[in-house]
């Protein structure tokens, strides 16, 4: 097993194209055991796509992703399942199974991957749901709870197997400030003493600075800035300053047509792009 300070995730020269748009264009970074890496960046800049490559549900156009020292980009389904048992993932939408209750959703990985008795599993489910502030919601269906609650159930499910590594895609969007603090405290508690490593996508700056040990800002398909929260806060890069202070004026272009918006946000502008792609309207 790795010791403290080892790289748990190594991403190198990661390129991902959709058609001829390079959404990720040469991303490289490492994540060490016990760290909490926050990935920031505007909507549609490829944060979720980057996460999907790290969990092996998308294959890169080029480049490498190593988890726990193993290259996952070329792995077969069988091999990657073994790696996947070691991490949890909270999807941006929660991705709860609509046909199961909240409790069954959290219990699912336990039923599938452990030999625990139903009673033990029930206890664990109770505890995990309590951790995210959802005591007593076991028997509701996902469509009977709010978006923020789905997120938290998704988090409880991601934590069900006590993973060494947690990916969360915007865990606090849609949560009220108090619940945001609860979720942040939970992340801090779990990563304390290097028990868990976390990679969190967030554009909630309060929450990001509260939990991060290191931050990455994505833009134009590459890493615009990287550093500790203090380094990011004091960064001289005007794009970073604009983003973390949430200012409308600055180098990140806002008042654009849809076509221009895409060009600026997703790729280094290329003259021949105009009008070729359907605009994907993404809320996030």
């Amino acid at each position: 097993m790795s010791v403290n300070g080892d790289s748990i995730i190594e991403v190198d020269q990661l390129v991902r194209r959709f058609g001829d748009r390079a959404v990720l264009d040469g991303i490289a970074f490492n994540v060490h055991r016990g760290e909490t890496l926050v990935i920031m960046g505007g909507s549609g800049c490829g944060k979720s796509t980057l996460l999907r490559h790290m969990i092996g549900s998308m294959k890169p156009t080029a480049g490498s992703v190593k988890l726990f020292g193993e290259e996952i980009t070329g792995m077969k389904e069988r091999e990657i399942e073994r790696v996947r048992l070691r991490f949890g993932m909270l999807f941006q939408s929660g991705a709860l199974l609509a046909s199961l209750t909240v409790g069954e959703n959290v219990a699912l990985p336990l039923f599938q991957h452990t030999k625990k008795s139903p009673d033990e599993i029930e206890q664990i489910v109770k505890r995990k749901l309590e951790m995210v502030g959802l005591t007593g919601f076991e028997d509701l269906k996902p469509d009977e709870i709010s978006g923020g609650m789905k997120k938290r159930v998704g988090l409880a499910r991601a934590l069900a197997l006590d993973p060494e590594l947690l990916f969360s895609d915007e865990p606090t969007s849609g949560l009220d400030p108090i619940m945001t603090a609860v979720v942040d405290e939970l992340t801090l508690k779990l990563t304390k003493g290097s028990h868990m490593t976390a990679v969190v996508v967030s554009h909630d700056m309060t929450s990001a600075f509260r939990i991060a040990t290191r931050m990455i800002m994505l833009g134009h398909g590459s890493i615009v800035a990287e550093g500790t929260p203090d380094e990011i806060r004091n960064s001289l890069n005007p794009e970073v300053q604009q983003f973390i202070h949430g200012r409308a004026d600055g180098p990140i272009p806002l008042n654009l047509s849809q076509e221009e918006h895409k060009d600026h946000q997703l790729v280094r502008p290329r003259p021949f792009l105009g009008g070729r792609f359907r605009f994907h309207h993404k809320h996030s």
Partner: peptide
């Protein structure tokens, strides 16, 4: 329709990521 809805709402991907085939 049921499996398709699960696909577009990322439920299938979530299953795979939980190492459930």
């Amino acid at each position: 329709a049921e499996l398709g809805t699960m696909k577009v709402s990322e439920e299938i991907e979530a299953l795979e990521v939980m190492a459930i085939n």
